[in-house]
């Protein structure tokens, strides 16, 4: 009985916190559907177009989960866009120079890329925890260095051709319907939510963001927790890079340029506070949907990309203002 009441209570809690955001997604969809019908283009709200939206948001989604953890500790990670390229280049490089069997080299390539991501994240973590470098600066430095390193490793141009099997992660659809990338993203969201809500680690992350000194004096291992968070965020960014590289069928050192901003936007639109301590994985998912439905919808009804950027900016501002307003009402 108590389990079901708790479930109901947490659902209520979720709706109270994110009801408005979910409503925003629904309204967005409705508006695009209406416009699409007026223009006589194909219906926006078809199953295939919704799957497409998820597919296009898979990469941002994977990154946004890691970013949510970082922002919850009160930090920020600007290096994720460069890590997308870095991961893709490394795995493409391995596969390009590897031989048979192709599958084995793809797995090795992915593994090496993830390890490299972990090393980058570990370095950020060390800089932040032991050298007290502000996360903004540490990750800004890494953003630049990793981008440069990706160009050097790739020799300045995309690494191609790659074997067909390389596109499994980015292009394959299970049963011809569900993209593998979407499954990966959904699993990352579920695991992230469990990690944040049900484990000691997740509690520590929120405690650190809420009040770092208070957490330290309660025996929370600050350095270890933050270090793990940066490692995780970087590895997820590399995972996103693997999906993108697989989708492109090449290892492109230009990939993910500027994506850190889009990812942070999704997290913030989802209600996570940039000052730390407050936010949820569910919120990030809805934030991601708002941003990706907007992008896809605008494409659908033929708004060109410059106009899209303007509208995205307005939506980010609107979401943050709405959040401020809600906080003000409560406080």
């Amino acid at each position: 009985m108590s389990a079901s009441t708790e479930a109901r209570r947490s659902l209520q809690q979720f709706l109270r916190t994110y009801g408005v955001l979910i409503l925003a997604v629904v309204i967005e969809c409705a508006i695009f559907e209406i416009i699409a019908r007026r223009q006589g283009v194909r219906s926006f709200l078809s199953a295939s177009s919704l799957v497409n939206i998820l597919n296009q948001s898979a990469i941002y989604g994977v990154l946004a989960v890691g970013m949510t953890f970082v922002i919850l500790t009160g930090g920020i990670d600007l290096s994720v866009g460069s890590l997308i390229a870095f991961g893709g280049v490394i795995s493409a490089l391995v596969v390009h120079h590897g031989g048979e069997p192709v599958w084995m080299w793809i797995v090795i390539g992915g593994g090496v890329a993830l390890l490299a991501g972990a090393a980058a994240g570990g370095l950020t973590g060390l800089l932040v925890t032991h050298a007290s470098v502000p996360p903004f600066i540490a990750t800004l430095a890494l953003m630049s260095s990793l981008r440069g390193l990706s160009y050097i490793l790739a020799g300045g141009r995309p690494i191609a051709p790659l074997p067909d099997a390389y596109t499994f992660l980015g292009r394959h659809r299970i049963g011809g319907l569900v993209p593998v990338g979407v499954l990966v993203m959904l699993s990352v969201f579920v695991l992230g939510a469990v990690l944040l809500n049900a484990t000691r680690f997740g509690r520590h992350v929120r405690a650190i963001g809420g009040n770092e000194e208070g957490a330290r004096l309660s025996g929370v291992p600050i350095a270890r927790t933050k270090w793990a968070v940066y490692c995780m965020c970087s590895m997820l960014a590399v995972l996103g890079g693997l999906i993108l590289s697989s989708k492109l069928g090449s290892g492109d050192p230009k990939a993910g340029l500027g994506d850190e901003l889009g990812v942070i936007a999704a997290v913030v639109v989802g209600g996570t506070s940039l000052s730390g301590g407050r936010g949820t994985i569910g919120g990030t998912f809805v934030g991601l949907l708002i941003v990706s439905v907007l992008n896809s919808g605008l494409n659908w009804i033929g708004v060109e990309s410059f106009g899209q950027q303007v509208i995205l900016g307005v939506v980010i501002l609107g979401a943050v203002l709405l959040d401020r307003f809600k906080m003000h009402e409560r406080g």
Binding site: G210, N211, E213, G214, A215, G277
Partner: peptide, 9 residues
């Protein structure tokens, strides 16, 4: 408030 509690929790 500053050291004893995580106020937002």
């Amino acid at each position: 408030k500053g050291q004893g509690l995580i106020l937002g929790m």
